[in-house]
Amino acid sequence: MRHARIIFDGRELDIDIDANDRITTSEGEVLDVALDSDQITWLPPVKEPGTIFALGINYADHATELAFEPPKEPLIFIKHANTLTGHKQVSYRPDGIEYQHYECELVAVIGKSGKNIKREDALDYVAGYTVCNDFAIRDYLENYYRPNLRVKSRDSLLPMGPWIVDTADIPNANALKLTTTVNGKLTQDGSTKDMIFDVPFVIEYLSKVMTLNPGDMICTGTPHGIVDCQPGDTIVCTIEDICSLETRMVSEQEYYGDKY
């Protein structure tokens, strides 16, 4: 089963989507609408977002691309809900920068609280998986708490969704094809099998430090194949058996409108 949050017919709804793409609301109402309909506005799929953990340089090939040694322990940074946006929504490119790239990532959504969770028990704490695009702006990198908040905590730069797939429906999260297209052209073609630190490892690691709670998310990093994105570009991040996440880039002025 898949789970999402949408606005449909002026109502904000929690929905389940079955194997036949039939949509049922949490009230039990069946919606007569197709998943690709423009009548659906997709919201970020986690209803009450908690702490968002994101991994840097967590694919061996991406580590090479960025001229880093593969890390011996995970590089983890924190993001908050201001960065989230939904499927088929917009993300912005700041003015005056040279290089902003997508990062297609598998996301594990935490479903229950735990501390000191053992690796072999970790998936009991995962409600499901979704896809995110953890945009980065390389111009803003500084060597203090790198990747710093100016790079990774900006409004709208963590599209996520469109839905969460139950953990039980994904027998092996580390054997999934991962691709990104920009304006229909394939630019990233990898697999979650190349992840250095997998979800159970990261859950064990984090939960030695801190309590994980429902609504927390772990974004697991991206493989090789990142390119600059410009306003007007449409970026689609896809992970096999999970979902495809579409984002349109806009300028900073278009995004902020009157607040620009």
Binding site: E142, N143, Y145, L149, R150, N213
Partner: peptide, 19 residues
């Protein structure tokens, strides 16, 4: 190294909700 130059922007971190 590894800093190479002093920070040009505020150096920020979060204390997340479990803290």
């Amino acid at each position: 190294a590894p800093y190479k130059k002093p920070p040009t922007q505020p150096v920020l971190y979060y204390k997340p909700r479990n803290t």
